[in-house]
């Protein structure tokens, strides 16, 4: 554990809490892609199956359970509790275009050809692209509420901090997880355009982020 990794995990936690609290308080999930949230729940589910096979640390176990619970709570709020507010007309990204290549890749490129390892690899690749339905939705509607952009900012910050964590681990413990690093870098690139808009628009006090 290093400071980048801890800060990354905290950013990830903050992002998910921001989204959950936003939906709960406003009693609305307008502007939120339910598809991205289902994909994230699938990411956590397939990655954290090792909860049943290995124990790494109390921190690791607690964080995994919290992430799982919060991602399922988010999906529940969007599709059950506040489904009337769900903007399905703008949440039209074709998820199968992500799932098919990701499933194929996880069978081709993995550390061991075992069910748990293939599912872990699937979760890593899927996380890299899971935000695409959300970014697609913002592009389609041309705007995002500032609280939604704060969510995306913390999610992107988490990714950037994980890259710093990998650089640190590479130099201090010769740790290099090629699958996680390559897909992590790809994932971070998706946020760059958004980061630019966030800094130039949202941080200048706009209530909404309107796309140029």
């Amino acid at each position: 554990m290093n400071v980048f990794r801890l800060a990354g995990d905290v950013s990830h936690l903050v992002a998910i809490i921001i989204l959950l609290v936003k939906i709960w308080r406003s009693k609305s999930c307008a502007g939120i892609s339910g598809k991205s949230q289902v994909l994230f729940a699938l990411v956590f589910t397939t990655r954290y199956l090792d909860l049943f096979t290995v124990f790494i640390s109390a921190y690791n176990t607690i964080m995994k359970v919290v992430f799982l619970a919060m991602s399922y709570a988010t999906v529940y709020l969007i599709y059950m509790r506040f489904r009337n507010m769900y903007d399905s007309e703008n949440d039209t990204f074709r998820v199968e275009f992500l799932l098919v290549p990701v499933i194929g890749l996880s069978f081709l490129e993995n550390y061991a050809f075992t069910p748990l390892e293939i599912l872990w690899t699937f979760s890593i690749f899927l996380e890299a692209v899971a935000i695409m339905p959300q970014l697609f939705m913002i592009t389609k509607t041309g705007e995002a509420e500032s609280i939604t952009t704060h969510y995306l900012f913390f999610l992107g910050l988490y990714r950037a901090l994980y890259i710093a964590n990998w650089v640190w681990r590479y130099h201090t413990e010769e740790f290099f997880d090629q699958i996680a690093v390559v897909s992590g870098v790809v994932q971070t690139i998706f946020y760059c355009d958004f980061f630019y808009l966030y800094v130039t628009r949202v941080l200048r006090g706009k209530a909404k982020m309107i796309l140029p």
Binding site: R5, N60, W120, Y162, D177
Partner: peptide
């Protein structure tokens, strides 16, 4: 630089 298993990151 072999990967250390199990996966210890979130």
């Amino acid at each position: 630089h072999a990967l250390k298993m199990p996966h210890d990151e979130l």
